[in-house]
Amino acid sequence: MEEFNIGQVIQFGGYDWRILDIKNDVALIITEYIIEQRSYHNAYKHITWADCSLRQYLNGEFYNTFNTTDQSRIIPVAIKNLDNQWYGSKAGADTQDSIFLLSIEEVACRYFGDSSEKLYNPGKNQRYWLQRKDENNRKRIARLEANRESVWWWWLRSPGRDNLKGVYIHGDGNIGIQGNNVLRGNRSDGRCTGGVRPALWLKLKSQ
């Protein structure tokens, strides 16, 4: 039987995925690359992960791109949604998801090195970013699937400084805790270019 390890890149459903965690025979995986660009929500309004259009897309249209064999390996899980640690904006209801985005806490404290000290003890002048010189930023940098020479920013599921914004990972790997506009991202022309890196729990099996 093939052995799997945290940090290993595997193939699943036509994408490259990085293993972030393993529990028994199930692994938490995230796409190695930003596989597409979408808005967090399809309208400019106060929204949480539970009700946003990106969650609906990932658990509907995107989930249905996997064949039945692959779908049988995706484990639906209870998702804990935490309020924004700096601004207190509400994350909304916990959810049950087959496919999801990571949260602030997951990228800051668990799966890309431990930056919890910076998350929970921000400096007096820190208002928008976790820390530009955080040694773990490089671990969060992601490139576009369509152009692997290009780094880009990607969404998290957590709310920004209010519920008109969603937290994201900047192109340099820093965590934008203030968030980007849920509809337009960081653009003024109405064209959202927010990167999507789906995550899921996968039942492992020998190849």
Rank of each mutant, 00 (worst) to 15 (best):
D16H: 14
K23V: 06
D25F: 02
T31M: 03
T31F: 09
E36S: 12
Q37N: 11
Q37P: 00
R38N: 10
R38K: 14
H41Y: 08
A43R: 15
K45M: 10
K45G: 00
W49L: 06
S53A: 05
R55Q: 07
Q56L: 15
Y57R: 00
Y57T: 00
L58M: 15
N59Q: 07
N64H: 11
T65Q: 15
F66S: 10
T69L: 14
D70N: 15
Q71A: 08
I74H: 11
V77F: 08
A78S: 14
A78F: 09
K80V: 14
L82Y: 12
Q85W: 07
S89K: 08
K90D: 09
K90P: 00
A93V: 02
D97Q: 11
F100L: 06
F100C: 05
L101Y: 02
L101D: 02
I104N: 10
E106V: 03
V107G: 03
V107I: 15
A108D: 13
A108K: 05
Y111I: 00
D114V: 05
D114S: 11
S115F: 05
E117W: 04
Y120P: 07
N121Q: 14
N121C: 14
N125Y: 15
Q126V: 06
R127W: 15
Q131H: 15
R132Y: 12
R132H: 09
R132F: 12
